[in-house]
């Protein structure tokens, strides 16, 4: 078990199973098919991301370095939050990028959903955490992985 400390972007607490993307998480490519066709498990549709391709994303602790790709990314995250199909939390090893930040903030300000977002957890966090591990997010930005 290890605990990592990051910066709170959107406050909140949760415990969830980790889903780890070692490379950049392409929000549009990951979500578009699942959202469009009502996939209840919200399986990742990004063929270029072998870490999480076809794996369910809903309710997971999504661990990633950053998001990449289309500038619809934030809008897609906002839609996922509004439709209650968001991950349990998003945990960034690096500084959050502008698209993910937009989606997280839009979800926080304009919906009643809570998706805690922590960034700057460090490269070691992403090296340590594995898909399937239990992740607990505390209110102060501490992330415990076991």
């Amino acid at each position: 078990m290890r605990t990592f400390h990051g910066r709170v972007v959107v406050p909140g607490t949760c415990t969830a199973e980790a889903l780890v993307s070692r490379g950049g998480f392409n929000t549009l490519a990951s979500y578009q098919m699942a959202l469009m066709f009502g996939d209840k498990k919200v399986k990742c549709g990004d063929q270029n991301n072998p870490d999480i391709y076809k794996k369910p994303m809903i309710g997971k602790a999504l661990c990633l370095p950053m998001t990449i790709g289309s500038t619809t990314g934030g809008m897609v995250l906002y839609a996922a939050c509004s439709l209650h199909k968001q991950p349990a939390c998003m945990l960034f090893s690096k500084h959050i990028d502008s698209l993910a930040a937009s989606g997280a903030i839009l979800g926080d300000v304009w919906t009643d959903q809570n998706m805690p977002v922590i960034d700057q957890l460090g490269d070691e966090f992403l090296e340590y955490v594995q898909t399937g591990m239990k992740v607990t997010v505390a209110a102060d930005g501490a992330v415990t992985v076991e």
Partner: peptide
């Protein structure tokens, strides 16, 4: 602006200034 291809063009080729904003934020 948002639209990744337009933002990168405006910044790089035109020399305007724009972050990679998301849809809705823009």
């Amino acid at each position: 602006w948002a639209e990744s291809s337009a933002v990168v063009y405006a910044n790089s080729v035109i020399g305007a200034r724009c972050n990679r904003n998301s849809g809705i934020i823009e």
